[in-house]
Every structure is written in structure tokens, then in C-alpha cells.
Computed example of a mutant assay.
Amino acid sequence: MTTPLSVLDLSPIPSGGSAADALRNTLDLARRADELGYHRYWLAEHHLAAGVAGSAPAVLIGLVAAATSRIRVGSGAVQLGHQTPLALVEQFGLIEALHPGRVDLGLGRSGHRGPSSEKTPGTPREPVTRAGRVVDGLLIPPPFDPTRLIASPRLAFQASLLWQPGGHAPAFADQVDDILAFLHGEYRAPEGWTVHAVPGEGADVEVWILGSSGGESARVAGERGLPFAANYHVSPATVLEAVAGYREAFKPSAALAEPYVIVSADVLVAPDDDTAAELAEPYGLWVRDIRTGAGAPPYPTTGQARAHTWSDEERALVQDRIDTRFVGTPERVAERLDVLRRVTGADELLVTTIAHGHAERVRSYELLAAAWHELDARTEGTAA
């Protein structure tokens, strides 16, 4: 098998805690992930969320890189619509200059104005009423309908705070091309002038594209021969579509001779199933607030979650995320992750874990690393 495990950290703020607590927890978890042998440590970008401290990924990535020694560090993902290619190359080039060979620049389409074009032209997206299904042991739930969320006036206002007045992000593909050009020292102004990103030009920064469907992000990654990250933990209904779209579009490049896919999963591991289930109880309430447009709240306690009275509409809103979260003992979760790896053909798995207590979150990663190593050894022994 020999499939690496990596970490996606949202820097969650627990109920009753602070952003400073969350950031200290991120540094502590990163050090432990480094010791445990995880391959990458990626930081997400979120804004105006009371329960997430990761608003400046480049800054936090630099701190994580300084606190660790081996593990690759990067973004999962920066919101490209709020940044310029030059600024990103300079930021990540600066980090790479101090921590050579360890930096990943993960790019996402978030922040682009206007309706999403995350769809391949001529290929209609499956309707949100489609029933869920199981594919070779992997649950593919009905798609989440984001119509109400996208139409939220609150979200539109919050997004406007991240744009310069009158500013307009270029096409996603053009921005990716500019990033690659700056890194390779090939950027040319329309007038023919050469422009050099310092630091950044020539940096050994690994560029990734993250996407949730088989649309533009998957196509851009494939056509440029870049590695691709597909979101099972955010959009489980479309993970197979995303991976297939990327592989279909793939063209070999100087970076990659063959497609390389990382697939994310939301995971919570505990010594026994009862403990894991108890620790997982607040998750649904947290996802509910995100999907209603309120933003990620401070992560609730189990008591706060149990005090909430659920309506049928609320349960339906979060059911796909709850059903596709891998919760349980180390052995059970490792086996389910192996199914995800097999069905998607993932070359690597990206694990994100959230719990109210930091110790429980760290313990989850510790237990999973050991179980995954044992499963790997067992699989290798069987193959031999």
C-alpha cells in the first residue's frame, strides 16, 4: 500500500478558548505530526469565522515550518481570488528560502466574484436530488445543495470586505499560469518587460490545485500537469467526479509524469467506539452553522451539542457530512480510509480532525498513525 498520510489543520478555536489557544495548538500538533511521520501539514484559509484562527496561511505556514524539521508545510488552500500571483509567489518563496524543499502552495478558486464555473462545459452536474450510493464500499451521499448558502447576503457582504474596491480577480487559469511563470522566471509584461519575483523565482515550491468537482479546478490541474487535491471531507458527493475529471485532463509536465491525487477525509479516532462517538457529537452542530451561512462557530462541547434540539431540516442539512466522517477505533478508521484510498485511487490521504479538546485531537492523530502503519505492514506482508 505505502500511501502517505498528511494533515489538514483548520486551527479551530474551541468554545471557551481563544485564537491564541488555537494557534498554539496548531504549532503543538504540527510538531507531533512531524514526529509521527505524517508527510505534509497543510493550513486552511478562513475569514470572519469566530471558530477558526487560520486567516493568514502564509504567516502560519512560516511559523509551522520554523517549529518543525522534516514535514512538508503548505496551504490547503489559499483563496486565490483574494491574492495576486506575485504576492503569493513572494510569500511562499520567502518561506521556502528559509525552509528549502518543504513548501507546498495549494491553490483554491475561493474568492472569485460571480457565479461558480466549477463545471466542465457541456457536462451537466448531477441534480441535487440524486440518491446516495455505495461504490465498492465507499459511501457517496446525495450532493449538498449550496443555493441558499451562495445567496446569503451575509456571506456576500463578508466577501466584499476581502476585495479591493473595484477590484476584479483574473480568470483562475490565468492566475495559475502567472504563478508558474513567476516561479520559473518566465513572466513577461505585455510590453515585453521581464519581471522577477524576489524571493520566489526559482524556489522549490510545489504547486497544488484543490477542487471539489470535475470542473475548472480539476481541468486546470490536469492540463498543467500539477498535483490535485480532491475534497471528500467537504464535498463527498463529488469526489469521484473530481478525481476522474483531473485524470482525464492530465498532461505530463516537468513537475509530474503521471497524475498525482491526494484525497481528504474528516476523521476522529479514539481508543473505543463509545468514546469516539461522544467526542464526535458536536460536529453536526458545527457544520450546521457553517452551512446556514453563520460561519464556523467556536467548536462546541459535547454538553452544548446535546442541549440543541434538532429539526428535520437541520439534520438533512448536515447528514452527508456526518455519514462520511470516519469515526471510531484506530483499526476501524484505518480500514475505512483504506477503502477511500482504493476507490478513489488516491496516492495520498489528507486527514483533518476536529474535537473540542486539543489533547483528544492530538491523540486521534497518534492512534491513526500507528493503525495506518500496522495496516500498511499487514498489506505489504500479504502481498509478499
Rank of each mutant, 00 (worst) to 15 (best):
G293T: 09
G62Q: 01
H184Y: 03
S160A: 13
S235D: 13
Q164H: 13
A77P: 09
V64R: 00
V176D: 10
L375M: 12
R125F: 02
S11P: 00
D266G: 04
S110W: 14
W208P: 10
L337F: 04
G185T: 03
V243L: 04
A242M: 06
G108P: 07
L60E: 07
P298V: 00
R336D: 14
E313I: 00
A173F: 00
D376C: 13
D347S: 15
P146R: 04
A156V: 06
L105D: 13
V128H: 09
L138Y: 08
R288P: 00
F250R: 13
D178V: 02
G328M: 05
V333L: 06
L368S: 11
T123R: 15
P153H: 09
I150W: 08
P165L: 12
G303E: 15
L60D: 03
L367A: 12
L375S: 15
L317W: 06
P4Q: 08
A53S: 06
A242V: 11
G381V: 03
T379D: 14
A296S: 12
A237I: 03
R341W: 05
R341P: 11
T379Q: 14
S116V: 03
E126L: 05
A67L: 07
V205Q: 06
L23T: 15
D272M: 08
L349M: 11
R288C: 00
R31Q: 15
F326W: 08
S75E: 01
A307Q: 09
A50V: 02
D289T: 08
P12T: 04
V176R: 04
D338T: 12
Q91K: 05
R332N: 01
A221T: 14
Y365E: 05
A159W: 09
S160M: 06
F92T: 07
V198M: 11
R325H: 06
A277N: 13
D9C: 07
E380R: 15
R113Y: 01
A77W: 01
P127C: 02
T129M: 00
V103G: 05
Y299L: 02
S253F: 12
T194Y: 00
G211L: 09
H373S: 14
T68W: 10
E281Q: 13
L63V: 10
V339H: 02
S235T: 15
A221C: 11
A203T: 07
A276D: 07
E314I: 00
R130N: 07
I322S: 01
A276K: 04
A244Y: 08
W208I: 07
T292F: 00
P282V: 09
A346M: 08
E360A: 15
R315M: 01
Y299P: 05
L86V: 06
Q158Y: 10
P100N: 09
P153Q: 14
F326T: 04
S160W: 02
V239Y: 06
T292D: 04
A151K: 05
L107D: 10
L139P: 07
A131M: 01
V198Q: 11
P330C: 05
T353M: 03
D312T: 09
G111T: 08
Q91L: 03
V327G: 05
T352V: 15
D178I: 00
